[in-house]
Write a protein that binds this DNA or RNA. Structure first.
Lengths: 221, 221
DNA sequence: GATACCAACTTGGGATACCAAGCCGGTATT
DNA sequence: AATACCGGCTTGGTATCCCAAGTTGGTATC
């Protein structure tokens, strides 16, 4: 694999994995030495990550995007629009065979599953559901939204009850889609996203002091 | 302004203005000499334009994105999802003062207005309407969709009657939004987008022979 | 002690040199 | 004449160098 994609992938994982904290400064020279690449692939990676919203410019210089509570709310509205559209499309398709695969993915998580896996599957559920619609743009939009939400979801204080509720909602959505009940699927999905947004923003808002203590920049709503 | 943004802007305008045809090959060296910049800003511009979908990689090398009829249909579905969501948000806002500005923008076009201006205003209508929602992500999505549609709309064979109909629909949507009638605005906007998609795809499909004769790559649906 | 000023360093933007891979044309062989 | 092979050229990928601007730390002056 080329250095370019390598740097981009590794840097993205460090940011999404909070190994580099929200709000932290990045210098091209540091990345260069950290990954053993030269500045050209480093700059290519930075440009890409900028369009993903994971990093931004801080005057002269680069900064890891802070956790922005107002932005999280806006993303939820955006998600709802595109995910509901995707699920309505899917419910109207003849071939909805991919649903079983998604259900199996959900069921692969149990009490022994590590937190990371729950986190990843919780995002992939929405991405794969959007993929079934066959619309590349809706898929891209959902993937982009989930990427931007990823760090916040990682920081969210989630209890097992909330996680179980989320999984039940996921399953209910799949059942409705499989049955071709577009309106019900849309309603369930909207409620799921709205609930998710509420819990997410509330959790981070309540804990923003703790987050700042960890050196994470948090922009209030 | 920095060379980087300069090259990006000029190259984007050349592509959107069809000065460089869909499907045409691009070499970094040609861009370099054409704009008097070195390869560093050229590559930055190419990376950005790639994420906008205006150019793509062709194995080793860059290519201006072809006109893709299947993609146009998918974009229409995507547009409808985000634009309807935006207009529903706007209709529910207290402050809908920006509507008059948009209406004035529409009214600035008359029989003497050059085609370019109609083209630009026809896109800006949708972008500015989305901006009123206050949601950055919906705005970005609409802007992105309109950018990807721009060349196709430019190639579309539009008669004055169709243009007049589109303007009337634009005005009707504004009236509904201003009155706070979210459902009606959503219905009108959906119909407008669906009709627009139909005319666009039909027009390009019928004329694809002529487009290919002009050296434009056209991917059939 | 406070402050104004200056030098050295850091940093991103840009330019250029080099490399490996692939494409293309020509040539030699059958 | 057809084809297989080979060498040069083009191209994107990478590394490195230079530059202007901004920051910082120290020092001299009041």
């Amino acid at each position: 694999m080329s250095q370019m994609q390598n740097v981009e992938r590794q840097l993205r994982e460090m940011i999404l994995g909070l190994e580099i904290g929200p709000g932290e400064r990045l210098t091209e020279r540091w990345i260069e030495s950290r990954f053993g690449a030269s500045r050209t692939p480093v700059r290519a990676a930075l440009l890409r990550l900028e369009t993903e919203g994971l990093i931004g410019r801080d005057g002269r210089g680069w900064t890891v995007a802070p956790i922005n509570l107002a932005e999280l709310g806006q993303i939820a509205v955006y998600r709802e629009a595109v995910e509901v559209a995707a699920v309505r499309l899917t419910a109207a398709l003849e071939d909805r065979g991919g649903i079983e695969v998604i259900a199996a993915m959900l069921d692969s998580c149990d009490a022994e599953t590590p937190r990371e896996e729950w986190h990843r599957v919780g995002m992939d559920f929405h991405i794969e559901l959007a993929r079934l619609s066959g619309n590349e743009f809706l898929l891209r939009a959902v993937r982009d939204a989930m990427t931007r939400l990823s760090r916040a979801r990682w920081l969210e204080v989630r209890d097992e009850k909330a996680l179980g509720r989320a999984w039940a909602e996921h399953h209910a959505i799949l059942v409705a889609v499989k049955a071709g009940h577009a309106d019900e699927a849309a309603r369930l999905l909207s409620a799921h996203i709205a609930g998710s947004r509420g819990r997410l923003v509330t959790s981070l808002h309540d804990d923003r002091r703790g987050l700042r203590a960890r050196g994470f920049a948090v922009v209030a709503a």
